[in-house]
Amino acid sequence: MAEPILKVENLKKYFPIKRGLLGALRGEPPRFVRAVDGVSFEVYKQEVFALVGESGCGKTTTGKLVMKLLEPTDGRIYLEGRDVTELKTQEEIKAYRRKVQMIFQDPFSSMNPRFRIYDVLEEPLLIHGIGETRAEREELIHKALEMVKIVPPEDYVGRHPHMLSGGQRQRVAIARALILNPTFIVADEPVSMLDVSIRAEVLELMKELKEKMGVTYLYITHDLSTARYFADWIAVMYLGRIVEMGPAKVVIDNPIHPYTRALLAAVPEPIPERRNIIKELPIKGEVPSAVNIPPGCRFHPRCVYMEKGLCDIKHPQLVEYEHNHWVECHLAGKI
């Protein structure tokens, strides 16, 4: 089997909480927000790997670690087989950025409102010195816009972001990510802020570009329906760890982890007959803070199947429940 494009091993990111002078003097131990607490996965060429979870689970932080916008506290990252966890020089970092690009969640705030579309797309070219003449760059920009179906490009390059619709802006953001011909794209909730009817368009486009340009995606989302549609693999995250991982359809049609089951139960579905029936949600309470991670299985306080004496004391391991389907739960298969 070929090398994975991206390999992440036991990635950790802890954010320290400021203690304050008194705390430090009293010798209080430093506390951390354990945003990412030991995450490992592999993504193969032209695959879409989805990181799914609610806010605070660490999926966005993982994305930023892969983008190297944040430095990991522990763990290793491999891109195309090379260890890229520690990049020292500016050139190395710049070279990395050419290969790994990002699409942000908010199509409005991810572009400088004073830039024109032309400037937005020219920026990556200028930074990496692609296209020596203006004409060359202009051509690349027009081609990029055509690829994301913003035509005719001449009409749009002079506009500012606020003159475009949400869907159009997000397509420009995709164009900006693709203009450098990267190997890997981290898409952080790329369609969450768009209308449902537009999401389809953008996701379709991303799928098409995957085929045409051979990019590999890390798709971060909280929406399981789009994950099923767009992703090949799904990893469900909770409080900084992956609790279930496998092919998209397998995870959705046969969820093993109680959290996955709860998530799936919570997804709204267009079935109006059920409108007066209170939906059963196999989950209790609220997401705890990532500062005080519960002992044992971190999901246990909210788990309706929790076994006292086991789940609250011992941390479960990620085991291959069935071929390519991994779960981190003591009770996997028994519920």
Partner: peptide, 22 residues
């Protein structure tokens, strides 16, 4: 078209429909 654009959780959809234009 609006209904056709909804991604389904438990169904396999080949291609999500979308409404062209704005």
């Amino acid at each position: 078209k609006l209904l056709a654009a909804i991604p389904r959780l438990h169904e396999d959809v080949d291609k999500l429909e979308f409404i062209p234009g704005q």
